[in-house]
Design a binder for these strands. Structure first.
Length: 892
RNA sequence: GCCGGAGUGGCGAAACUGGUAGACGCGCCAGACUCAAAAUCUGGUUGGGGAAACUCAGUGUCGGUUCGAUUCCGACCUCCGGCACCA
């Protein structure tokens, strides 16, 4: 065995061994329990980053763990290959998006392989390939025919200079990122998927996903936003005092019908037809509505903009009181939600309150606090949260005294009786706009015929192939390719035009997990193999996907189920959301108060004698640099580390070990060069110890005493074995909880015991030959078991080194087939226990008792302890609490 | 603005979900080996007081429940993720 640990030579050798045996090829086998472990596939952005490494290491550990436990594991990999960055690269470097993408996937595939992942590469897919997206197009046409896809107009970010649609991320402070022009909203026709038809199921199925984090389910629940409320119709009147024109009503939706009697005005969105109609007669209003169109469509911007409004000069009557109320246009009313109009109750809604105050609109208190938080809403004072609480109706005529539920019911009943409203369930969730005015995406399989309208491309004519040899400038090249878009109508043969929009890239990532089951089928989207593998048993990815991607994928699964492609209701049984990878930043202020960032490799950090960071200097010039905050690794902050160079330097096992050890999966992971050194040190220590323990290679590591209790162990070795099994027990528990950081620490504890010669393993040279023999046998038996446990426990985390070391000590059984270690509960038994004694909850002493001691004995010993006595000072004992095996608390 | 998280030594974190706060690792300090350095090994390391035994304080802040709170409840502060065209 080599003396030193050389990951650069063992890792490629082990990877070649796996490849030569197809170790990770997954085959359907109904006799075996399957385990489908999936990490979110990467966007091929160029090179692997540490976020990828963390994601795929987590997935690989879970895959190998389940494989060791005997499951039939599938772990696939592919490429989320369509998307905006490819178009940006094309514009910047003049390469075609396809060529750029394929070159990136080649680089990243090589990098992924060097991590030693247990992936079935035969199932690799790329969403930009026609053999993938043809099935997406096929499903699109099915859903179109079922009415689950429809067309309507929706606002987009429009760059008036570049004459193009911008993504939200391309709008920076209200301006287009390239042109710098002020962005405006523009309505364009788009296709939508009817996700709202599944809103109720998407909401309720969350209750049947115990393997999902509560926080993700909470976010999805709130996103879907089911509310029970009331639709209220306000009859429109031409002038105050006039009779309403029949049938002309302004509809609003409210979750607070109990406050209807307090409505003092109605506000509509700028896009509302009533506002649009009023604007045709009023130039000032038209100008205001035009001003509302400035800026982008991102909700965060809309929600934080300064509240502004203008009266429309239109009026409505209150459906219950008949009072005349003004209609305002307000920029805080969103066109996309509810009816695009709200009844404003300034006394009991914070936004209405602020708006009423700004424009001196009346405030009517109609709810009384049930806990006397306020008497009357003070329109001149500050808003109080209590104003919005549920209470009892006051100043509301016949509804006075009713509580929230009773008032809502009574008012809804009255509205329904008058035909001016009804109870309604409303969702915050909106239908999914899937059209993108971009080139690098899946073509929408629709042909626009002047006679037949929108005709889906027949199955026999699929796929609609995206041409890959293009050059990009402003706008989609598809719109400039008549040879591509001119085509006869499949229905009537008339000259027609293909749709030149492409699909949102979230569509590809909504079903890839299923395609991995049937990646080579060119006759169908999925086949019976999908029934074997689905649902995914463990899905792993970033928390940033908690809502959109995961909700769309759940929706798509139900769509596929309803056309008979899959049989289960949900795609992902268990979900792990990993945190970000962050690192410190280093910078110098440059003239013009810009920051020049230094990479961690360029600086030396300085510490004081207590280990506190006192500063940093640039290695190149020796002068100081500022130590900045700890931020997500990014190009702009220059604080990223390159996984490839780390693997070249330390080996994949070290990178994997550190990534898992530094933090639990859900928390952000702070990069630390010295932490990597520590991980490397641990693996070296493991290697060196085994290399030096030559007798291990001569023994069968798996061969262990049939009866440990009957086996003569020295007391020190019995104690060592107890510690090893205690750590094993903790590690097995933590594997199940996915707390791999503490699994690693358990492995370190085990190695610490196995290498603590002074405490356990040094044989006293003064012993006679027979005793020496007995002690040596005792030690070796425990050591052999300990290493066999450690190597298998660590294998999912650091597979190359464990595979190699195991092969040296137990060459007849590969580690993958060696079985998973189990705890010997009898090894954990202790004869004496140390108990903590508290007086009034404060630690005052420790006592040692036999494990079998009775409660009375323990109490007596605790009270007799001299340390404890000092704090009792003869005071009477009020209460005595004994927690078995842990502590005694004496209350005086 | 709305929704969801996180905050514990010099640093990353742990605490078997109400029972000894700081496991494991990093860093730092001291020692061994070395001509020396690196590497490796051994010991120490929450803060204040004390020669020591020991003692007081301490898990973002303030309050509450409890014999006992990092853990449960209420209010607040700071940071992070998402907000429908980044993926």
């Amino acid at each position: 065995m080599e003396d030193t640990y050389q990951p650069q030579s063992i890792e490629p050798a082990v990877q070649a061994y796996w490849q030569s045996r197809n170790t990770f090829r997954a085959t359907e086998d109904p006799q075996r329990e399957k385990y489908y472990c999936l990490s979110m596939f990467p966007y091929p952005s160029g090179r692997l980053h540490m976020g990828h490494v963390r994601n795929y290491t987590l997935g690989d550990v879970m895959s190998r763990y389940q494989r060791m436990r005997g499951k039939n594991v599938l772990q696939p990999m592919g490429w989320d290959a369509f998307g905006l960055p490819a178009e940006n690269a094309a514009l910047q470097h003049g390469v075609a998006p396809a060529a750029w993408t394929y070159s990136n996937t080649d680089t990243m595939r090589t990098q992924l392989k060097s991590l030693g992942l247990a992936i079935d590469w035969e199932r690799e897919l790329a969403t930009c390939k026609p053999d993938y997206y043809r099935w997406e197009q096929w499903l699109f046409t099915r859903l179109f025919e079922k009415g689950l896809i429809y067309k309507k107009t929706a606002p987009v970010n429009w760059d008036p200079v570049d004459q193009t649609v911008l993504a939200n991320e391309q709008v920076i402070e209200g301006r287009g990122w390239r042109s710098g022009a002020l962005v405006e909203k523009r309505d364009i026709p788009m296709y939508f998927m009817r996700i709202t038809a599944y809103a109720d199921e998407l909401l309720h199925e969350l209750d049947h996903l115990p393997g999902w984090p509560e926080q993700v389910k909470a976010m999805q629940r709130n996103w879907i936003g089911r509310s029970e409320g009331c639709e209220v119709h306000f009859p429109v009147v031409p002038e105050p005092g006039h009779e309403p024109a029949t049938g002309d009503v302004l509809k609003v939706y409210t979750t607070r019908p109990d406050t209807l009697m307090g409505a003092t005005y109605v506000a509509v969105a700028a896009e509302h037809p009533l506002a649009q109609a009023a604007a045709r007669e009023q130039p000032a209003l038209a100008a205001f509505i035009e001003a509302c169109r400035r800026g982008g469509t991102a909700e965060a911007d809309l929600a934080t903009q300064v509240k502004q409004g203008m009266p429309t000069g239109r009026w409505v009557t209150h459906p219950l009181t008949g009072a005349t109320l003004p209609v305002w246009v307000a920029n805080y009313v969103l066109w996309g939600y509810g009816e695009g109009a709200v009844m404003a109750v300034p006394a009991h809604d914070e936004r209405d309150f602020a708006f009423a105050r700004q424009y001196a609109l009346p405030v009517r208190t109609v709810i009384a606090s049930t806990r006397d938080a306020y008497a009357t809403v003070d329109a001149a004072g500050d808003w109080q949260d209590a104003y919005a609480e549920h209470g009892r109706c006051v100043a509301s005529g016949v509804y006075d005294g009713l509580d929230f539920a009773a008032a809502c019911a009574a008012i809804a009943t009255d509205l329904e009786a008058r035909g001016l409203g009804q109870r309604r369930i409303q969702y915050r969730l909106r239908d999914w706009g899937i059209s993108r005015q971009r080139y690098w995406g899946c073509p929408i399989p629709i042909i626009h015929c002047p006679d037949c309208g929108d005709v889906p491309v027949p199955a026999g004519q699929l796929p609609v192939v995206l041409p890959e040899a293009v050059t990009l400038d402003v706008g989609s090249p598809l719109k400039k390719m008549p040879d591509w878009y001119q085509t006869p109508c499949p229905r009537c043969g008339t000259a027609a035009r293909r749709e030149t929009d492409t699909l949102d890239t979230f569509v590809e990532s909504s079903w890839y997990y299923a395609r991995y089951a049937s990646p080579d089928n060119d006759q169908a989207m999925l086949d019976e193999r999908a029934h074997y593998w689905l649902p995914v048993d463990q899905y792993i990815g970033g928390i940033e996907h908690a809502i959109l991607h995961l909700l769309y994928a759940r929706f798509f699964h139900k769509l596929m189920r309803d056309v008979g492609l899959v049989h289960c209701d949900e795609p992902f049984r268990n979900l792990l959301t990993q945190g970000m990878v962050v690192a410190p930043t280093f910078y110098r202020e440059t003239p013009g108060s810009k920051k020049h960032y230094f990479s961690p490799a360029e600086v030396d950090v300085r510490y004081d004698e207590r280990g506190r960071t006192v500063g940093a200097v640039c290695k190149a010039d020796g002068a100081a640099v500022e130590v900045g905050s700890i931020e997500k690794m990014s190009k702009s902050k220059n604080n990223g580390v390159d996984p490839e160079s780390l693997i070249n330097r330390y080996g994949a096992d070290t990178v994997r070990l550190f990534t898992l050890f530094a933090a639990p999966p859900e928390l952000s992971l702070e990069w630390s060069d010295s932490g990597v050194e520590g991980a490397s040190r641990f693996l070296k220590r493991l290697w060196n110890r085994l290399a030096q323990t030559e007798w291990l290679a001569e023994a069968n590591t798996l061969a262990q005493p049939a009866d440990w209790n009957g086996f003569p162990l020295e007391p020190a070795h019995r104690e060592a074995r107890r510690l090893i099994h205690a750590s094993l027990k903790q590690a097995l528990f933590d594997y199940e909880k996915h707390q791999f950081n503490t699994v690693v620490s358990a492995c370190m504890k085990i190695l610490n015991v196995l290498t603590d010669d002074k405490a356990y393993w040094t044989v006293d040279p003064g012993l006679d030959a027979a005793r020496t023999q007995a002690v040596t046998t005792s030690a070796r038996t425990v050591l052999r078991e300990g290493y066999s446990i450690l190597l298998r426990l660590l294998y999912p985390i650091a597979p190359h080194i464990c595979h190699t070391l195991w092969d040296r000590v137990t060459p007849d059984v590969p580690i993958l087939d060696a079985g998973w270690p189990g705890v010997d509960e009898t090894a954990l038994a202790q004869e004496t226990l140390e108990l903590v004694v508290q007086v009034n909850g404060k630690l005052r002493g420790k006592i040692s008792v036999e494990a079998t001691a009775a409660r009375e004995q323990i109490e007596a010993r605790a009270l007799a302890d001299t340390q404890v006595q000092r704090f009792l000072e003869g005071k009477p004992v009020k209460k005595l609490i004994v927690v078995p095996g842990k502590l005694i608390n004496i209350v005086v």
